[in-house]
């Protein structure tokens, strides 16, 4: 009885509950990769793959036409132009199509940009394959530069039948400061390594 005193029992319960609280703190962070997985499966956030598709389309469905619309938006801190050469294209699933985008930098210094894609409806996101996209990498725009940025895509022939129109939206962000900060970190780490 003395071994299992009230004080011991209290401490034991306290310890269990503290561990639980810490685990839930960890759970908040576990939600981040979990959310990414859910998004990949369901297209919840409409993100398309961030790597180039290496396989070409299996076939082209000639008797089906889907409208693909393009929207461009400028994120915080970007004041140059950002637009697509065309607002919409009609394509057959499996047909490879090139669309040019343009971005300009009116500033007097170089900027680094990153464009983020999003597809509506979200469930179409994983049926949109890109073999080339300016969004795969950061794009550097020199002072006053206007840049043509091609994007080559095709729609998966398995695209669900009820989807007749999908919208691909790009938001361009100025990540110059972010890149500079990362480079600093890398350099510091290298210094430490030496």
């Amino acid at each position: 009885m003395s071994h299992d005193s009230l004080e011991h029992r209290n401490k034991r319960t306290l310890r269990k509950l503290l561990i639980w609280a810490l685990a839930m703190f960890g759970f908040a962070f576990a939600m981040v990769p979990f959310y990414d997985v859910i998004c990949d499966i369901t297209g919840l956030n409409g993100k398309t793959s961030s790597t180039a598709s290496t396989e070409g389309p299996a076939r082209t469905v000639e008797d089906r036409t889907v409208t693909v619309e393009f929207i461009t938006q400028r994120g915080q801190g970007v004041n140059g132009d950002f637009m697509s050469a065309t607002r919409r294209v009609k394509v057959h699933p499996g047909e490879i199509t090139l669309v040019n985008f343009y971005a300009s930098n009116p500033k007097t210094s170089e900027i680094v940009t990153q464009s983020i894609p999003s597809v509506t409806p979200g469930e179409a996101a994983r049926y949109l394959h890109k073999t080339q996209c300016f969004c795969f990498d950061q794009q550097t725009l020199g002072a006053g530069e206007r840049k043509e940025m091609p994007m080559i895509f095709y729609l998966d022939p398995e695209l669900p039948e009820h989807i007749t129109t999908l919208t691909l939206s790009y938001t361009i962000f100025d990540v110059t400061d972010r890149v500079a900060a990362n480079n600093d970190t890398v350099m510091n780490n290298n210094t430490v390594a030496k």
Binding site: L17, W20, A21, L22, A23, M24, F25, G26, F27, A28, F29, M31, V32, G75, Q114, I116, T171, F173, D174, V175, R178, A181, N182, T185
Partner: peptide, 28 residues
Amino acid sequence: IAVMPVLAGAVTMMLTDRHFGTSFFSAA
């Protein structure tokens, strides 16, 4: 005990997004 730590996690992510270069909530 189940959810207050999750709130703490959310504000911690905010803090690191604001000052330590993480991008939990930043699309860029």
